[in-house]
Amino acid sequence: MGHDRAGVVSAVDRETGLRSRLADAYVRSASGGIRLAYLLTGDRAVAEDLVQEAFVRFVGRLRFLRDPDAFEPYLRRTIVNLSKNHFRRRAVERAYLEREGQRVEDVSTDPDVATYDTLRSALLRLPLRQRTALVLRYFEDLPDATIAELLGCRQATVRSLVARGLEALRTTPEVIS
């Protein structure tokens, strides 16, 4: 960096104000964050809650942010971590799986819609780490190194998670047929 971090933070503060910085960051990033959280959790309300939580954590810390451009990685990482924490609550997960089980029974008779619903359910039934690896690689277009850092594992593990996730989707009956 050609300037020190104190200079960066102070310049941004002077120009926009901390509150407007949060508003700008939210306008810019909330929709994408909710979409990512939805892919990880399969529940829109939960996704919105996670993104809300991520921003709330950010509110009191704006002044401490080293680099304004670091917000997007911060948000992504927080959402992944919060999703992980969400699924750690086993009771919530069981309720979620029960709801998903009911969803499968409601599959449409339209072949395309039925295939999509089945794939969607298959995607959301993947173990969280496999699904997160797939989402980060194919939805967020992140390199394996970044995914490994987010998941706290080696790059080889990321490749394994992705391969196993793809295999699970490929063996979905509608895909085979």
Binding site: R19, D24, Y26, V27, L39, Q52, V59, F139
Partner: peptide
């Protein structure tokens, strides 16, 4: 598949004020 699932979340205009109020 991933983008189709993500598109289930409608892209609505984002108003930061409710979030700021709720957050604070």
């Amino acid at each position: 598949l991933l983008f189709r699932v993500a598109d289930e979340v409608p892209a609505a205009p984002v108003d930061p004020e409710p979030l700021l109020r709720r957050g604070f």
